[in-house]
């Protein structure tokens, strides 16, 4: 009898080395794509301190020094930055797949997805006005907004606390639309069943959303056991298939994985959106090279 092992445990998502790495990445990042052209214009307005002044808040590391209110500083002796209510906010939206299928892999794909979300969200906090995190199925935490570089820790804490829940991709549509179409939409998932994403992608594109698909790639997406008796189980549905792997079956499985990748690419291509396959590094690998690809993609 084959014993059913427990689901893989996701290691600590944001340890100190990763936080250091994240700050380095954000400091090096030049810019981030916001969204539509009118939003680019709004961004320029913000940079020129346009909009209605609504108050001050204490300066935190990472705030744009140009937004420091020096007069207030002279009065109080402390650094404050001005807060404006822009006509059009420049934000980004992160849609996270919290399903159990992301627990597959060593390290689990969910670890790479959460760290990817932290990098993209951090870039949005640094270079844009805020970021909205949409996590379908997470209940009260399904929709959260963060603004300013000072919210980075809050963003990481929020991401860290997201549960593993099963939800359909369609559930993301009302959540995204509830806040208006705020900025560029980054959808992080394994897109294991591309057909289920057709409807939400089409709906969001009809409403003018600019979408980038992020797929943390794992070795399991390409490599297949060469031989042996394997009981494969879908962690989301619990369905089990016992297979006796030989060379012919391994080759057929590789063909199926290639076909899946082509379907995923075709899905995003048909809606004019890019799908980024980001090769996730090991859990304890904090070299900056592997993460610069994300920064580069965000800057395009």
């Amino acid at each position: 009898m084959t014993r059913v092992p427990p689901l893989p445990v996701v290691p600590p998502r944001y340890p100190a080395p990763f936080r250091t790495l994240l700050h380095d990445l954000l400091a090096r990042g030049g810019r981030m794509r916001s969204g539509r052209v009118d939003q680019q214009r709004a961004r320029r307005a913000v940079l020129s301190h346009s909009g209605t002044f609504v108050g001050h808040r204490p300066y935190v590391h990472g705030d744009d020094p140009r937004r420091i209110d020096w007069a207030a500083c002279a009065r109080t002796g402390e650094l404050f930055v001005k807060q404006f209510e822009e006509e059009r906010r420049r934000t980004a939206t992160l849609v996270l797949d919290l399903s159990a299928s992301l627990l597959v892999g060593a390290p689990p794909r969910r670890l790479a997805a959460l760290r990817l979300a932290a990098v993209v969200g951090g870039l949005a906090l640094r270079h844009l006005d805020g970021v909205t995190v949409v996590a379908p199925g997470a209940g009260a935490a399904a929709l959260a907004t963060f603004a300013g570089a000072g919210d980075l820790d809050a963003l990481l804490h929020h991401l860290d606390e997201l549960p593993v829940v099963a939800s359909a991709p369609e559930a993301a549509i009302p959540l995204v639309l509830s806040r208006g179409m705020s900025g560029h939409l980054h959808w992080i998932s394994d897109f294991a069943d591309p057909a289920r994403f057709e409807l939400p992608l089409a709906a969001l594109r009809r409403r003018g959303a600019s979408i980038t698909g992020w797929l943390p790639a794992l070795p399991e997406d390409r490599d297949v056991p060469r031989q042996g008796y394997v009981r494969v189980q879908d962690p989301e549905t619990g369905a089990v298939l016992a297979v006796a792997v030989d060379a012919a079956l391994a080759a057929a499985m590789r063909r199926q994985l290639e076909l899946l990748q082509r379907r995923q690419d075709r899905l995003f291509a048909q809606f004019g959106c890019p799908l980024v396959r980001w090769q996730a590094p090991a859990a304890a690998e904090y070299g900056i090279v592997a993460w610069q690809e994300i920064v580069a993609w965000c800057a395009r």
Binding site: P8, V104, Q227, G228, Y229, V232, Q233, D234, A252
Partner: peptide, 25 residues
Amino acid sequence: PPQPRRHAFTAHLAQWQAAHAALRR
């Protein structure tokens, strides 16, 4: 069943089923 025997979680169960079907197994 033949060795090695193991249990693995996968996000590609549909692909395993399709590969089996393609080989008529």
